[in-house]
């Protein structure tokens, strides 16, 4: 079986969010980069668990990004996976990214494609869904449980009022979230092994971007907290009713 795991490089969850060049560019100075948590903790680790069960499984990691994405993809390889593919393209357009991954996915004839449910920078949650249209494959989103039995996957996914269990035959695309697997930390052996694992650099296929970012804005600062006397909860209720108008 062949699994493709999509890996994105994102700023650390605690990174300071600021913009430069007239608010058109994210300020990367001093930013720590990490593997997008949903890609790492859930998609990649679940793929590794499937390989542990069936060692004949091959895991390929794919990322779309420049040379600066390599430390991230090496870190992912230190957790597990057999080889990585970096598509040498920088784009903020979800369609461009999905189209690049689709080209690699077509060539690799994967049985399973895992993505995180979204990235923590652009929060677009587009790639899995777009891949399903580009590759004409079934897609199950926001999965929190995944089991494989031969060619059939049993997947639990979140819905607004609970959980849905579905079955689908491979090949299949799944976007992963909390519950799929437990976070792991790479060990020394993994880190050493990752250095020699193949990292293939692929030239981007030609696509036309469908969107572009014209500017960023920070939310207006909160006007400051209004402190209420703990002995006067009637006042809090009044403010919520009359000032905030939320109850």
């Amino acid at each position: 079986m062949k699994i493709l795991v999509c890996i994105s490089k994102t700023p650390d969850t605690t990174a300071k969010i600021a913009f430069i060049e007239g608010n058109t560019k994210f300020d990367e100075s001093g930013v720590q980069w990490i593997i997008n948590p949903y890609d790492e903790w859930y998609a990649l680790v679940r793929a590794i668990e499937l390989k542990e069960k069936d060692p004949a499984t091959l895991i390929h990691l794919v990322t779309v990004g420049g040379v600066d994405a390599e430390p991230i993809i090496r870190k992912a390889l230190a957790l597990g996976g057999d080889e990585a593919i970096r598509i040498d393209s920088n784009s903020n357009d979800s369609f461009t990214v999905a189209a690049q991954i689709a080209a690699v996915a077509k060539e690799g004839a994967y049985d399973l494609i895992f993505t995180g449910k979204e990235t923590i920078d652009y929060n677009s949650a587009c790639i899995g869904s777009m891949l399903s249209a580009l590759l004409d494959l079934p897609f199950i989103s926001m999965a929190n449980h995944f089991e494989l039995n031969g060619n059939t996957a049993t997947v639990k996914r979140e819905i607004e009022s609970g959980e849905e269990t579905c079955e689908a035959n491979l090949p299949l695309i799944v976007s992963c979230q909390k519950g799929m697997a437990e976070q792991r930390i790479p060990n020394m052996r993994g880190i050493m092994a990752a250095r020699t694992k193949p990292l293939k650099i692929v030239a981007p296929s030609s696509t036309t971007a469908t969107t572009s970012i014209s500017k960023f804005d920070l939310p207006p600062a909160k006007s400051g907290v209004k402190l209420i006397d703990p002995e006067n909860m009637d006042e809090l209720v009044r403010l919520l009713k009359e000032e905030a108008k939320v109850i």
Binding site: T13, I17, Y122, I213, K215, F216, D217, P219
Partner: peptide
């Protein structure tokens, strides 16, 4: 974007 910490205008 950035989990609610900023906004982006997308064309």
């Amino acid at each position: 974007v950035f989990s609610g910490k900023a906004f982006a205008s997308i064309k």
